[in-house]
């Protein structure tokens, strides 16, 4: 296997006496769709927060395309090509859908502190933002305030915003949480379409989504990666069944 695009080596994170992540090892290959599953409290969200720069690891290394990113600020990590979504919808509630997306597209074009041109005159940015609005199927809601969207629409916008900065590695945190069966199917299709030439790392509780969408799966239990493999391998792994799937099936 070529060098992984995202790699965690012996990552630890403790909050006071609580050791949440205890030596996590993970390697995500370029272009794959990789899921992290695990029982509640296993540390999945913390793992995402460490990778995306919300927290700094207590020890260990995190590399993005070979470059150390642990300890960097979230905005720097995003600029290096890793973008994440949030479990609780995290949009700009009083701005339109289009503007929500455009903020990210602006960052992709390096337009950050520009006070000398009209936003409406940024042709490439506006076109790309419009295209992305259409790809997340919110064209009909282009000018609706994000706070006024229905829940599943907000989730779609959430994914759109994560993609908008043009990052190569996409982290999605429970993208289908709280959705109906129908909405979930819709969302899976959307994710598959949107991440075609990207690397995807996703935390997900819905096993249908995980097995249907992802190439490989890592199982996180008590802050450690218990096993990594294809869906078939994971299904067959007895340790995983004991730790996680069995409990879920019961």
């Amino acid at each position: 296997m070529s060098t992984p695009v995202l790699e965690l080596r012996d990552v630890h994170k403790a909050f006071g006496a609580a050791r949440i992540i205890q030596g996590a090892e993970l390697a995500v290959a370029r272009g794959e769709r990789h899921a992290v599953i695990g029982p509640n409290g296993a540390g999945k969200s913390t793992l995402f927060n460490l990778i995306s720069g919300m927290f700094t690891p207590s020890s260990g290394e995190i590399r993005l395309a070979g470059r150390r990113i642990d300890g960097l600020d979230a905005n720097a990590i995003n600029r290096l090509g890793l973008s994440r979504s949030f479990q609780i919808t995290n949009v700009f509630a009083r701005m339109s859908v289009f503007e929500n997306i455009r903020i990210g597209v602006m960052a992709r074009h390096g337009i950050r502190f520009d006070l000398l041109r009209r936003a409406a005159a940024m042709r490439a940015v506006n076109e790309q933002a419009q295209a992305l609005v259409e790809r997340v199927r919110l064209a009909g809601r282009r000018d609706t305030l994000a706070g006024d969207l229905a829940y599943s629409e907000q989730r779609a916008l959430e994914i759109g915003m994560t993609l908008s900065t043009g990052a190569e590695v996409i982290l999605l945190d429970e993208p289908t949480a709280g959705m109906s069966r129908e909405e979930t199917a819709h969302a899976v299709e959307l994710m598959r379409d949107l991440t075609k030439d990207k690397t995807l790392l996703v935390v997900e509780h819905d096993m249908d989504v995980v097995f249907g969408l992802c190439d490989r799966i890592s199982v996180l239990v008590y802050g450690k990666i218990l096993a990594t493999g294809t869906p078939a391998e994971i299904r067959a792994d007895r340790r995983v069944q004991e730790a996680y799937l069995g409990e879920e099936a019961a």
């Binding site: 979230a74 600029r79 700009f92 509630a93 903020i103 915003m161």
Partner: peptide, 21 residues
């Protein structure tokens, strides 16, 4: 301006702006 639009985003959700680079 583009930065004027970014200002509104800062008001709505500073954290998200940070995670968008």
């Amino acid at each position: 301006t583009p930065f004027g639009r970014l200002t509104l985003a800062l008001r709505d959700n500073e954290q998200r702006v940070r995670f968008m680079g």
